[in-house]
Design a protein around this nucleic acid. Structure first.
Lengths: 217, 217
DNA sequence: ATTTAAATTTAGACAAAACTAAAAATAATT
DNA sequence: AATTATTTTTAGTTTTGTCTAAATTTAAAT
């Protein structure tokens, strides 16, 4: 159907598109894809010919409806495989990304519908991100960044923004995990760092940390 | 490490090499890879540069020790994924090949060792073929083609030579499955067809069938 | 032992997806 | 508004793996 590269571009455009209503710029896409702007222009033209994106020179690129559907299918596969790796194959949440990045391109409807069934239709991946269903629909959680909470507020940790191995290992080390309750005990004016209570533990975390943790109040 | 295409060539050479002690011919490889002889020559040169095969112009190609090890790793992955698809995702033995063909190229040592563990270290794939261990070792079963048995002999069905969907569906339809006991009741001189007793059933099968079923006496 | 046939290799070309360097368009500054 | 800076696109190459057509080598047949 689509090449590996085309699929990866669609996914990247989808992820960049969430951040704003404007079109995705060539440079942003080049950065995300770890490639050069000229390569992006070439590929975007190809995707445009295939009606997967809407593209006008110098105006950035938008996913078309079919492009969005295709991107969501890939994201669905990626996140289902992540669940599989963690739940069945003893991977930790910081190890799954690269392997899922490969597995997401396997082409078989049956494989994914059966995997979904085998995993008992999970709604979220190991990082708390929602898994689109076969139609591409998914819950948009009303989540808040921990950094946006005020002293005294509390909620449940439902996701992470940064999914880098370094960040996830930091969380593991400090026993900060999905599903736990977090309460903001104090905030330092100077650097924005927070003193948080997470179950029995109390610790101070920097803004780099609080700006990458999603809370459901 | 190696490209998709390189891996597929190594696998193809491995499979063709079993049939004889001579080198694999360019044309045979072209046929197996569904490509042209000139493309094969190009790729074989590349594999030779990488010391994965031993190649002398016009003399056919042989796997080197490292080529053989690489091929066995891919075959191990292919067969483990086949077991996974059948045992965990409700695939039938005639549906697994194409998907496993894609899954076998996923690069992760941990993925495969954990999958192996998850499946409880299977020794054979759904078609009865042996699964190499992490070192590339596997049992070479002392199996016989059903067509080589004589009237009165019996044994257990341990594998199939032809793994095409058509043949496997034929076997399903006639309740011929791995692990069942088969006894040769009679053989027709004229066309070589056999009357076989397989558990409670008795049926007549052609040489196309008997030459593709492996029996362990 | 020639000639013919078949198999194999070489040479040159192409598509996909990337690159570099230069040109063009847009945005930002003075 | 004109100039400068930034972003984006174009033009021309490169690499991988394929192809066709022609040349070469090996095998088969007379």
């Amino acid at each position: 159907m689509f090449s590996l590269s085309e699929e990866n571009y669609l996914k990247a455009i989808f992820h960049l598109q969430k951040h704003s209503t404007a079109g995705v710029s060539t440079n942003a896409l080049a950065e995300e894809m770890q490639t050069k702007a000229s390569s992006v222009t070439d590929m975007v033209k190809k995707l445009s010919d295939k009606k997967l994106v809407v593209y006008k020179k110098y105006q950035g690129v938008y996913l078309s409806e079919s492009g969005r559907k295709t991107a969501l299918k890939i994201i669905r596969k990626h996140r289902l495989w992540e669940v599989f790796l963690v739940e069945k194959l003893n991977f930790s949440w910081d190890e799954v990304h690269d392997v899922a990045e490969e597995l997401e391109h396997i082409k078989s409807e049956k494989l994914i519908s059966e995997l979904d069934k085998f995993l008992d239709y999970p709604k979220r991946d190991p990082h708390g991100d929602p898994i689109p269903d076969a139609q591409g629909d998914f819950q948009v959680a009303n989540k808040t960044l921990l950094s946006d909470l005020s002293t005294g507020e509390k909620g449940t940790l439902v996701g992470v923004k940064d999914t880098s191995s370094e960040f996830l290992k930091y969380l593991d080390k400090n026993k900060i995990a999905l599903g736990k309750t977090i309460e903001v005990m104090d905030q330092e004016k100077f650097d924005g760092s927070m003193l948080i209570q997470i179950e029995k533990n109390r610790l101070r975390v920097s803004t780099q940390v609080t700006a990458n943790i999603y809370i459901k109040i």
